[in-house]
Design a protein around this nucleic acid. Sequence first.
RNA 1: GGGCGAUUAGCUCAGUUGGAUAGAGCGUUAGCCUCCGGAGCUAAAGGCCGUGCGUUCGAAUCGCACAUCGCCCA
Length: 554
Amino acid sequence: MKKMIREKTRAALQVIAGSNELPSLEAVVVEEPRDPSHGHLATNAALALAKALGHKPRELADKIIGAISDPEGYISATTVAGPGFVNFKLSNKWWAKALSDIIAAGPDYGRKPLTGRKVQVEYVSANPTGPLHVGHGRGAAIGDALARILAFTGDEVVREYYINDAGRQMRILGASVLARAKELQGGTEEFPADHYRGEYIYDLAKEVLADKTLTPPNFWALPDEEKIPFLSQFAGQRILNGIKKDLEDFRAIQEVFFSETSLYEKGLVFKALSYLKETGRSFDKDGALWFNSAPLGDDKDRVLIKSDGEKTYLAADIAYHQDKFARGFDLVVDVWGADHHGYIPRMKAAVAALGYKPDQLGVVLVQLVSLLRGGQLVSMSTRAGEFVTLREVVAEVGVDAARFLFLTRGHESPLDFDLEVAKAQSRDNPVYYVQYVCARIYSLIQKSGFEPLKASLTKDGAPLLVEPEEVDLIRHLQTFPETVETAARRLEPHLLTAYLTGAARLFHQYYGRHRLIAEENEPLSRARIALAAAIRQVTVIGLNLLGVAAPERM
RNA sequence: GGGCGAUUAGCUCAGUUGGAUAGAGCGUUAGCCUCCGGAGCUAAAGGCCGUGCGUUCGAAUCGCACAUCGCCCA
């Protein structure tokens, strides 16, 4: 739509300029005016180019209108308005053609050809020290939807989960299980304050106590320091299996689970540190090894190996990212919790130090989720071990509602997630509002008995869909590819939930004002059912990109 | 103390290359079931886009200060 007008405007400007070279069209935009009375599209060409072409804006606008060529009859009116905007009204013939194109594209409407770009989306990546909670669910919904959107716009996408299984948290996990095991055996030691207190630790302790195959047979007689590494591994493995199941049930499939420990086992941390040393990006100071990140945009330099010889998380993360890029990804997207925002400059610096462009690392920061029930905050304290798990939330509201609601806000905005709203089967709940479009249209098509794909949208060359609501709907459907593309470029899947909610509103309004199946006028009914089918088609594509079901009946 | 982000209707928030009279949902108020699915629709009320200055034909959008809130770092 915009493309058509852009080309016609450009051609008109060329006519005006004659044999002279056209000035830069960079500042010229074609857009949809907010006020519908201004027409369907408007361009600021006359405002932007008045100076360069030596005309007053309004005079230039008149000249542009005079020079527009439209043999196809796609434009029904052109006007000059305000300081020199040129407004275009498109003809019903254009809208009929646009709708046919959308229907013809079918389930691939909005899909882009393969770009050849390889993209990795890493998301959730929670420490395997406890079950996933609601916040992880938001990260999962965003990461998974992003992966789907990027694949749809032509990238080759791999989804990955990074398992932080090497650090202090894992030792604490093992120690927590040990402490609970002792307790279950009648011990009276106080449970350490900084250990994991969740109920699941008891379950793990019981499981390991009941395990008769532990080696050596006198396992429980070993000193604590020898028991803890085993218990860490034992608990971590089981918790990770639970996480995998949670993600799978949430339809957030990860293709690769990458272990931090494996970085050390494969010598990748050593390799990365050697690389930094050879390229002069690291130095020794105060008995520690430092990454010289400040010249690369970080606030200050960062420690890689502490004076006690222990390597930092950053050292492992640099090795991990070096490995990611070595695997051939052109773009690496990390979905992180918002508390990691201070981490971005040093990772960008690391990417630069490794010889890649900082832009090749895209970081999506996901803000906090506040869980509410009927407007009241549900307390979530990890320290007390009482948090609401993703599994519990999904069991209560369902995968569709949870995923959709996690994607209703920009990822950088904190999100209030109200369990009562998520369960509501009414307009309050945007997921039902959108899904209802699919069910309602499916039912309409069944009832009509038409084959919408075969409907003709014109009769004797005259378009049948001429109501303002119909034009608004087609116009909205036309912007779908652009919306998907923007969501992909900006890594913002929430643009799609907003789009779908808008489409649903337009459809429900249309349905309320016009009968789609008008018995006395079959060609019109066929055209309207075809429009409805196109709306359903686009809604289904959109919901698929969000990983939300598009039901035929509800 | 330094850094990052936020501030738009009573509430929750959209609003990106700067564009004409700033949008939506919820809530409030008043309506719509002889009618294709009422999980819906129609309409009303509701705003100094945190404050001030600047940039220009033109600012919620860009810049600089300030205020308040949140997060990160020391």
